[in-house]
Design a protein around this nucleic acid. Sequence first.
DNA 1: TTATATGCAAAACGTTTGCAGCCAG
DNA 2: CTGGCTGCAAACGTTTTGCATATAA
Lengths: 146, 146
Amino acid sequence: MTLNYDELDLARTLRAAGLRATPQRVAILRSIEHDKSHPTAQALFERLRAEFPAMSFATVYNTLAALTKAGRVQPMHLGTVTRFDPNVVPHHHAICDVCGTVRDVPAADEPLLPASLAEGFEVRRVEGIFRGRCGRCRKTRRTSAR
Amino acid sequence: MTLNYDELDLARTLRAAGLRATPQRVAILRSIEHDKSHPTAQALFERLRAEFPAMSFATVYNTLAALTKAGRVQPMHLGTVTRFDPNVVPHHHAICDVCGTVRDVPAADEPLLPASLAEGFEVRRVEGIFRGRCGRCRKTRRTSAR
DNA sequence: TTATATGCAAAACGTTTGCAGCCAG
DNA sequence: CTGGCTGCAAACGTTTTGCATATAA
């Protein structure tokens, strides 16, 4: 296995997470690292087919599970599918009802907590989901879909 | 089909929603109507087996889809499964990492919107998801699970 | 050298669909 | 009477699993 500079970096990241730097894992991490589209395992698999025609679903799923456990990626269950978010800093999501795109929304400083929560519940993570129409889809006629 | 007073009420509700008041639907609506546990289709199905040994999954799913379209129930995708919430008033959810219970959190007057959203996104629905530990589980040793 | 990861295939899981017959309206 | 609904079973899409083989460290 031959790695270029970037790949050596990715390999280092993987090993730092206690994972073996296999070519498949390096490719998966490289593919999702800066991807703001919240891809599904399927999407990643298809994207990597060209490079690794023999790669199996299982490897993609295993790797994403490993990266999740290592805290390098955050799974989000949206509808029936699991999407993966390389942004592990707490934040919210804006989801377009029309085109389905998911965009990150930085968490403000305010904790986004309604006073009504209370009652002994210890909050560890807060996620806001904002559903509506993105700017692009607002310019079209369509009102909702998918 | 013979209906008692409560069931006549449920039947009326169903017809008002443009749905036929079949015994199965009356039972499903009655079962979920005041259920704060956010049951899955599975859970409802099992709960109704006793009363309708012949009832099929399809009927439960069809009915829940119909009730959703009629605005009597709100589906929520949590983890990989779909739960159904009879509370259709906008509100948030507190989910216990340990026992998995989902409790409704009334939406405060404040819109729960971070300033950072903007950028042309038209927000139609906001849902806050608060993950942590419920009061009951905080009293036990366990820290997380499921 | 060896524990870990891989590819493959099959199974599991929740959900959806097609269809013949049934029954609420 | 008739269209919407039912039960059944099979199909679906996504994810998980078991196992023999390969490979990173």
